[in-house]
Computed example of a mutant assay.
Amino acid sequence: GRPLSVDSTRLAPDIGRPLLDRDLAHRDVFDLIEETTGHRLGSAEVTVHAVTAEPDTARLLEIPAGAALFAIDRLTCLADGRPVDAESLRVRADRFALQALVHRGPIAPPT
């Protein structure tokens, strides 16, 4: 019943315009990108770091200005490498945890 994050997405114009007529409230935007372009998504570069809530973001998240937030920035590309979606999320740190499972693989020989 309380907000978790504020998300901002920027799409390439030829990708974003066709999505305006789609059901963005109930469909995954990545599925819609693949459907409208006819191309598969390939990879995403994700950066997670800490920030403090600016007044507008704090108001939307119902937290005090200056509260700790996770900032998640993601650049998603089609399989051919073309960037199509730049997303910035601000997530309440009191309601979110980042967990990763990291495997150690063989050590690559020096080049």
Rank of each mutant, 00 (worst) to 15 (best):
S5G: 03
L4T: 01
T47E: 15
T36V: 15
P109C: 09
A108Q: 09
L101Q: 14
V46T: 10
E45C: 14
G66K: 05
L24E: 12
R10V: 11
A44Y: 09
G16D: 09
V48R: 05
V102E: 15
A44M: 15
L89M: 06
L24I: 15
P110A: 05
L4H: 03
A58Q: 02
A58R: 01
E54V: 02
R27W: 13
H39P: 07
I63C: 02
A68F: 06
T111V: 09
A71G: 04
D73Q: 07
T76W: 05
I33L: 08
A67S: 07
R90W: 01
L32M: 12
D7K: 05
L78N: 06
P13A: 15
A53Q: 01
D7N: 11
L11Y: 11
V48C: 07
R10H: 15
P109V: 07
D73F: 03
E45Q: 12
R10M: 11
V6R: 01
D21C: 14
D28A: 10
G16L: 08
R92C: 00
D94L: 02
E87F: 09
T57R: 01
L101I: 13
R2S: 11
I63E: 01
R92T: 00
L98W: 04
S88G: 08
T47S: 06
G16P: 07
E62H: 14
L11G: 05
V51C: 03
A44E: 13
A71Q: 03
F70N: 00
G16A: 09
A53D: 01
P106K: 12
E35W: 15
A44V: 10
G38A: 10
A53N: 01
F70Q: 01
L61G: 00
S88R: 07
D73K: 03
I107D: 09
I72Q: 04
S8F: 06
F96T: 03
G38C: 10
A58C: 07
L75S: 07
G16Y: 13
L32K: 08
A50M: 14
L4K: 02
L20H: 14
V29Q: 04
D31H: 14
L69S: 00
V84R: 02
L101H: 09
V84M: 04
D14T: 10
I107M: 11
R95W: 04
V29K: 05
E35K: 12
T57G: 01
I33H: 05
V29M: 10
T76V: 14
L24Q: 11
T57L: 02
I63R: 00
I63Q: 02
P3D: 04
H49G: 11
V46F: 06
H39M: 13
